[in-house]
Design a binder for these strands. Structure first.
Length: 800
DNA sequence: GGATCTTTACTTTTT
DNA sequence: GTAAAGATCC
């Protein structure tokens, strides 16, 4: 995110709203209830201990139980963030620790930012000294940079994002001569990511799992991947946690220094921690055990990316004697909403168990509305009408949200709202820094700052098109790989030879010269000036200006936006450092609008009115969750429903469509089992007429039983995929000889004594046989029998 | 090397 | 149905 030097949030820059991340305190994140408890708690600086008055008994206990392990089970809307921030304020106010001695960890940058702001509102500017308040990854990076050399990295290592990781995985797969179709890079990335989430290094991946990928070579590929990262002086996101764990384990003195430094530790959203994060925390907490974790097992919805609800369930075992505080007093929702949410989540087993209650006894509180439509288009139309009707009763659009299970559902709402002229905003979708043009531009900057950044160089070497095609890139790679040098350096050497076609050679030479020039101007120009020059001289902006496609102007606008965003930082490296971790931009509040987002994205937010469409079997609970994770999957889906319900302050509309288009085919649906898990006494079933049938009164459900649709997955493609998965796959043909480490070392050592002295007969793939006329380091001048005199690299010739 | 055709996936997604 | 990535053709 963009922040000014004093740490306050900057107004969002226009254009950034396309990034569609949740606003800081825009419509999605409303300010606390006017005159409400939260607002009073936030009300400016006040004498010490006054902050405690604003808490209820349990919250106060959670704040004041400062020493020793504490588990705070905070239900939805029970003032979880307030407890965390007040606790920090309390520790500071009572002089137990200085700001720099508190470790406070969150999952998202947004949460970290909010926490810092709220602590600042309680304790004033000293909150700025909280250097260790941040995301797991930000703090991990900080630790790793300090001790990088202990794990074979330089302190200026680059952090690769998912895109880079997949490309790296692809290179490994190719280098190993595996069939890219059978073993997709994306899958390899997922597997490695999963291992890293579980704290597994290549050496301790369970044997069975290591075998599952690439005919038993899964762990080898992981190892190769890690080795590549070292060569690139890079880490991926998983390493930001794994490497510090490694350091802590192998260097007790380093661990001890951190255990001493962090006098108090706090963790937000503990139910979302994965094994690696758990191990990391446990190592740090073993010192003084002043660890306070806050979470809600009922809101654990990230199991699919490695979160272990078990971490929260077994906290008391890990930290015997832990104080457990339950926050159950809900300040957000009406009684019927809480009753519905509690009733639904009560169908899950294996909970720590909390019962939310509210002191708000509004006799007029609305029941939940459950309604159905003939199909998904009708559903969007009906919800649109509902929104307009609320709008006429002067409800703010900012206070309405449509929470969907899967992003494809958003489209029908968007289509409908465009027709109606109803303002909406979509949260989620590709982020600003994930856009192609932004990533391309960043790649240029990365190569300038870090010439060894091969992934960045490869990305832009032929973007815009400059005649450096597949063949040329492959030649670059071969050279780089065989000599263990970065691509840029390989390119520098290759252009001095005649390995490449003259045209290719010239443009590669130009590119390298450009990079050298830009790099030399790094100190002379401001980084924004340089950025503009780079984008201009490289022909990158020109490329989009020439592009006649509809989105080209928008992309140019994004590039301008990028340069504007860079202005907030004081140097190119600091900008790059920032964005690798904080791929996050502010959303301006702008016009009043309905929010459309996924249930996952909605966690932590609240709205007066919440629409929950698509409650159909197969979609919600999602078929795949049930198929792949069985009961556990179903329970996670139910928690997702719980999260959805508890986002609402006043009213909820649950919707389902009788027919929905699945992969382009209309299919009839079965109403979600979750509908029947809502308490009847708090639900108004809206009888729908107009599509025949109707429902209610007959069948097993209160909702119409419709023909079950044939499983989506009974399609030929799916079956093929299943067959492929289950079959033992034969070793695909080796595409190119494996480059073996020993050989490589031998080659680079050979520099001292030429492997091909003058007069040696050599063979070159392209130029045929010839004899060496001169040797200059690794460059040979060879008189070829047919092709004449050429300068080539020694790694391209062999003895005949 | 670039344009065009074909194939494939298609839940959720932060860092 | 659709969009993006990959393969194939020119």
């Amino acid at each position: 995110m963009i922040r000014s030097t004093d740490g306050s949030a900057m107004p969002a820059v226009p254009g950034f709203e396309e990034s569609a991340s949740a606003p800081l305190r825009g419509p999605g994140m409303p300010a606390p209830k006017r005159g409400g408890i939260a607002e009073r708690a936030l009300g400016g600086a006040r004498p010490a201990a006054a902050y405690l008055d604003k808490l209820n008994d349990e919250q106060r206990r959670a704040v004041e139980t400062v020493d020793g392990p504490v588990l705070v089970l905070a239900g939805a809307g029970t003032g979880k963030t307030r407890v965390l921030t007040t606790r920090i304020a309390h520790i500071l106010a009572t002089g137990r620790a200085r700001p720099g001695e508190i470790l406070a960890v969150t999952f998202t940058n947004k949460a970290a930012r909010e926490m810092k702001e709220r602590v600042a509102s309680l304790v004033g500017p000293s909150a700025e000294g909280m250097a260790w308040l941040g995301t797991f990854h930000a703090i991990g990076t900080r630790i790793l940079r300090r001790h990088a050399e202990l794990v074979g990295l330089r302190p200026d290592f680059t952090i690769l994002d998912a895109d880079d990781q997949i490309r790296l995985a692809k290179q490994i797969i190719q280098a190993e001569g595996l069939d890219e179709k059978r073993w997709p890079a994306r899958q390899m990335h997922n597997i490695i990511d999963g291992w890293k989430n579980r704290g597994l290094t290549p050496a301790n991946v369970p044997l069975g799992e290591a075998r599952a990928f690439a005919n038993g070579r899964g762990a080898d590929l992981y190892k190769a991947y890690q080795e590549r990262l070292r060569v690139l002086n890079a880490t991926d996101f998983g390493d930001l946690l794994l490497e510090p764990i490694q350091i802590f384990r192998t260097h007790p003195d380093v661990l001890a220094s951190y255990q001493e430094r962090f006098r108090y530790m706090l963790v937000d959203e503990y139910q979302d921690t994965n094994v690696a994060q758990y191990l990391w925390l446990r190592l740090l907490a073993q010192g003084n055990r002043n660890l306070c974790v806050v979470g809600d097992d009922d809101q654990s919805i990230y199991g699919w990316r490695g979160a272990e609800v078990d971490n929260i369930l077994r906290f008391e075992n890990d930290f015997p004697g832990a104080a457990v505080v339950r926050l159950e007093n809900n300040y957000r929702s009406t009684a019927p909403i809480l009753a519905a949410a509690s009733h639904l989540i009560g169908h899950n087993e294996g909970r720590l168990g909390k019962t939310l209650f509210t002191e708000d006894v509004d006799a007029d509180a609305e029941k939940l509305t459950v309604a159905s439509s003939w199909d998904s288009e009708e559903e969007a139309r009906a919800i649109g009408e509902e929104i307009e009707s609320l709008q006429r009763k002067s409800h703010s659009l900012d206070q309405m949200a449509i929470l969907v299970r899967a992003s494809f559902q958003m489209r029908e709402f968007e289509d409908r709202f465009v027709t109606l002229g109803l303002p909406y905003r979509v949260i989620g979708g590709p982020r600003f820094y994930e856009r192609k043009e932004i990533r391309d531009a960043l790649a240029y900057f990365r190569v300038i700052v870090q010439p060894a950044d091969d992934l960045a160089f490869e990305r832009i070497v032929n973007t815009p098109k400059r005649g450096i095609g597949e063949v040329a890139v492959k030649t670059l790679y071969d050279t780089a790989r065989s000599r263990q040098i970065p691509l840029v350096q390989a390119a520098t050497e290759l252009v001095q030879t005649e390995e490449l076609k003259p045209k290719t050679r010239t443009s590669l030479k130009d590119l390298i010269a450009s990079f050298a020039r830009w790099r030399s101007e790094l100190d002379r120009l401001t980084h924004t000036e340089l950025a503009e020059i780079v984008l201009d001289e490289s022909g990158y902006t020109e490329m989009w200006r020439m592009d006649r496609s509809a989105d080209a102007p928008g992309r140019l606008e994004n590039l301008k936006e990028l340069v504007r965003a860079m202005d907030e930082f004081d140097s190119l490296p600091s900008f790059l450092e920032h964005i690798s971790l904080v791929m996050d931009t502010e959303n301006e509040a702008g016009q009043e609008a309905v929010t459309i987002m996924t249930l996952h994205a909605a966690k932590g937010l609240e709205f007066d009115t919440v629409f929950l469409p698509g409650w159909e079997e197969g979609l919600f609970p999602h078929q795949r969750a049930v198929d792949e994770s069985g009961q556990a999957g179903l329970e996670e889906e139910r928690r997702l429903a719980y999260v959805g319900l508890t986002r609402a302050r006043q009213r909820i509309f649950v919707w389902f469509a009788v027919n929905r288009r699945v992969h382009g085919m209309w299919q009839s649906t079965i109403p979600s089992r979750f509908l029947d898990e809502l308490p009847e006494e708090h639900v108004d079933v809206r009888e729908q007429s107009g599509y025949g049938g109707g429902y209610g009164g007959y069948g097993q459900s209160r909702f119409d039983r419709v023909e079950p649709f044939s499983s989506t997955y009974a399609t030929p493609g799916w079956e093929r995929a299943q067959r492929r998965k289950s079959q033992g796959t034969p070793q695909p043909r080796a595409r190119e000889p494996l480059t073996i480490e020993g050989e490589l070392v031998a080659k680079s050592v050979s520099d001292a004594e030429p492997a091909f002295p003058v007069g040696t007969r050599v063979f070159h793939m392209k130029f045929g046989n010839g004899s060496v006329a001169a040797v200059e380091g690794n460059k040979l001048t060879v008189d070829f029998d047919k092709a004449g005199r050429k300068r080539v690299l020694d790694s391209f010739v062999q003895r005949p």
